[in-house]
Design a protein around this nucleic acid. Structure first.
Lengths: 334, 334
DNA sequence: ATCGTGTGGGAAAGCCCTTTCCAGCACCAG
DNA sequence: CTGGTGCTGGAAAGGGCTTTCCCACACGAT
């Protein structure tokens, strides 16, 4: 044991091994310089003996950059974000990055504040996950991100590309269009769109896709109901839509669709006989719902993994799109 | 603008404000020393002008401690962990701590490796979430945690107290007992326990609670089926249990119970008429299941928040228990 | 006029690493 | 033998920040 308290430092290690700091440093982390075998061994053994563990903060200072990937998510309880986060976490760890995760609660002031704090760590990667509200000014956010970029971080936005940085998102439009076409092909003609918040960019992209699909089938939506993104938003919107005489409800995410299912069940409205229901994202719970929920499959973990890869590539103009295609189940009579 | 590139440093700030480094440092972070108003203002204005942002790594080095809370979870996609994580994240941020989150994938070698890496940041808090396997040796893990402890981190284990550190967990035993009693009181006499992995400590605690509740009602389980913790584990166990003639299935978590529901539905076995089913944790999906799943309610976010509070209290012998009580729904005929 | 006694700015040492630069050495070609 | 040419250790100069000392100064009390 070297120090009575406090973890051993590189200095302790060098002394224990009888080499200089430089040599010790070169051994315990991949430097470009080679160290002769006998020295290497001595240092390694000494490190083991005293339980040396590099101080990563000090490394970050000395190197001027850290091995941190900063992740900002809207809401970690939402299965969508949880799945993407899992992918990010896996990919980041494979790259030897440590992930910090912060929850913005969908509030852009928190988002900005968190970004500022995290910026203090000079992270290697910054990942913003979650769609933006189109009504909110993003110039402050943009400035902050640009600042981080200047400081050497790679920035990537997941879920949309409304910011001048690299982005990774699902092909919402195509997925939505194909799903709407499938619903129309299944004989539904009075289709309503549960569109979520009018100013959330993901929601509007999906709603647009639905519209396009219906148009292609010669239909117009009988209603486009806006509301909040969650389960209760889905319930309310569903009731309004059936009130308008809909025989199919296209929700912009699964959680809303599940809310819709539950509201319809309570009202004694049969799915899919009377009304078909679809979701989006194909979260795990979709297949388990009763009836099983038709949805649009997105490989969310892959989305997260791609986000890390794209960020590391460091090209701000990259805009990767991962596929999204319908999965048809019982809730649409398939 | 001060530097052509690279974020401004404290040195830049001091120069811009025309004060010494010491004074600048005292102003931009809460030191005990007071700085006279005119100086304060000058520094603050300068900071704003050049967009100064403290380098947190450098602070950590100088102070010998960081503002990091390191969180290790088994699987972020599991709603149980996601909910606890949300609580941890909220509480940590309220304390001004930044959360790093890593996924162990339930592999103790990864857990150990991650712990070592994270230790390099000299975190303020280390939170281990997820139950341990009783068969796995934990001495290496214990050593590592003790090392972190010595280096100044507060360690807390969430979900059990099989390690000599502070712990926060739900009152699994009581919740399980009460639920089992309620099921017995509802007239079920051939009760099976879907016990999950035999060596997972949370699972065994809950299974024990079920046993105790049945015993109190004068019953013995007709079967105790072990298997994996997830959805498919629940399916398999459910089929085996009904094969043994069970009229009620007590699962040790909701995800397994949902698997059981789906397996029974496929087999055409009616819930709750022929067989009652219960889960544990009361995740969001439980209330939405068809039939709605009886479960044991645990305030998972509160569990996460308490974990942070207990950790910060720094008492290794603390062992907090949060309440767990049955929620009876349609799946038990309530 | 003198002597505490605060008060608060600044110089500098220190935190733990990385990396540049220098110097010693061995080796090979001429 | 001499003069390159690689190798590889080590000294030392950072990197950005905190904090301990020291000291100048102003103030009130004698």
């Amino acid at each position: 044991m070297a120090r009575p308290d406090a973890p051993p430092t590189l200095y302790d290690l060098a002394r224990e091994a009888g080499v200089s700091l430089a040599t010790a440093s070169r051994v315990v982390n991949g430097s470009t310089r080679k160290v002769a075998e006998p020295y290497r061994v001595r240092v390694l053994e000494a490190a083991d003996r005293i339980g040396y563990r590099a101080n990563l903060s000090a490394q970050a200072v000395a190197r001027g950059t850290s091995r941190l990937a900063a992740l900002l998510v809207s809401d970690i309880v939402d299965p969508f974000f949880a799945a993407v986060t899992a992918g990010v976490s896996r990919a980041a760890e494979a790259e030897g990055l440590l992930v910090t995760m912060s929850v913005t609660d969908r509030r852009s002031d928190r988002e900005l504040e968190l970004l500022r704090t995290i910026g203090g760590f000079r992270p290697r990667l910054v990942l913003l996950i979650g769609s933006r509200r189109t009504t909110e000014p993003s110039s402050e956010l943009e400035d902050e991100l640009r600042e981080l970029r200047r400081a050497g971080a790679d920035v990537v936005v997941v879920g949309h590309h409304r910011l001048p940085f690299a982005s990774v998102r699902a092909d919402d439009t195509t997925g939505a269009r194909e799903l709407a076409e499938a619903v129309a092909a299944a004989g539904r003609s009075r289709v309503a769109i549960l569109a979520g918040p009018a100013d959330l960019s993901t929601a509007t992209a999906r709603a647009e896709g639905f519209r396009a699909g219906l148009r292609a089938a010669g239909l117009d939506p009988v209603a486009v109901v806006h509301g909040e993104f969650g389960r209760s938003g889905g319930r309310a919107a569903a009731l309004e839509a059936v009130g308008a005489g809909a025989d199919a409800l296209l929700a912009v995410n699964d959680v809303m669709a599940l809310g819709a299912l539950s509201a319809l069940r309570e009202r004694g409205i049969r799915v899919p006989e009377q009304v078909a229901v679809t979701g989006f994202d194909d979260i795990a719970a979709a297949a388990d719902a009763v009836p099983a929920l038709s949805s649009v499959r997105i490989d969310l973990e892959a989305l997260g993994e791609r986000a890390v890869a794209v960020a590391l590539a460091g090209d701000d103009s990259a805009a990767e799109v991962v596929p999204a295609h319908p999965v048809l189940r019982a809730s649409t009579g398939h």
